[in-house]
Amino acid sequence: MTMLILVTAGIGSIALGAIVTVARISPLQVLRSAAFLYVQFFVNVPLLALLILAVFALPAAGFILPLVPTIIIVLAVYEAAYVSEALRSGVNTVPQGQIEAARALGLTFGKSLRWVIVPQAFRSVIQPLGNIMIALVMNTSLAAVVGVIELTAHVNKINFDYAQPVLLYTTGGLIYMAIALTIGLLTGRLERKLVIAR
């Protein structure tokens, strides 16, 4: 369950984060402001508060989704704010001259994004994105509070029976560590492969 939440929320957050980044650098003031507010909101509200609001307050307003999709969506929109900040710094590494050259060649804003800016932006922030995914691994544990049986909830359950908190939570921690280290190693490899020689 932890892996399911991690993979779906991870892909969702990168996709959504890319859209927010594009909005933040778009020529339209309205889109830029909306993306700015989005990032500020999700960076400044604790994830647990968002989860509890989504699980208990949204149904009161008439939106009710099963628990697992709710949690995946909340994690994806939350992490997307961080992804978009990382990507924006990636965009800033693309030399201004390249953007001007792309426009001079007759590429539209959309085309220069698609073929020039976004690919380079992604390549330069692989390691920071990896760190955000590692943070996401840790954040999936909050799902245990709102009724989803993932890794932490399993540990809670076993501990309730066996009363061995130190042993069990150390084991749980080691499993999280293994997942995080794997992501770290993978992103390290990916970065070496894709790094832009300048």
């Binding site: 509890i52 208990f56 628990l67 245990a144 509070v145 709102v146 009724g147 989803v148 049986i149 909830a153 809670n156 359950k157």
Partner: peptide, 10 residues
């Protein structure tokens, strides 16, 4: 199928 919530009010 168990759904564990953290608090009684929840």
């Amino acid at each position: 199928k168990l759904m564990p919530f953290a608090t009684t009010p929840g």
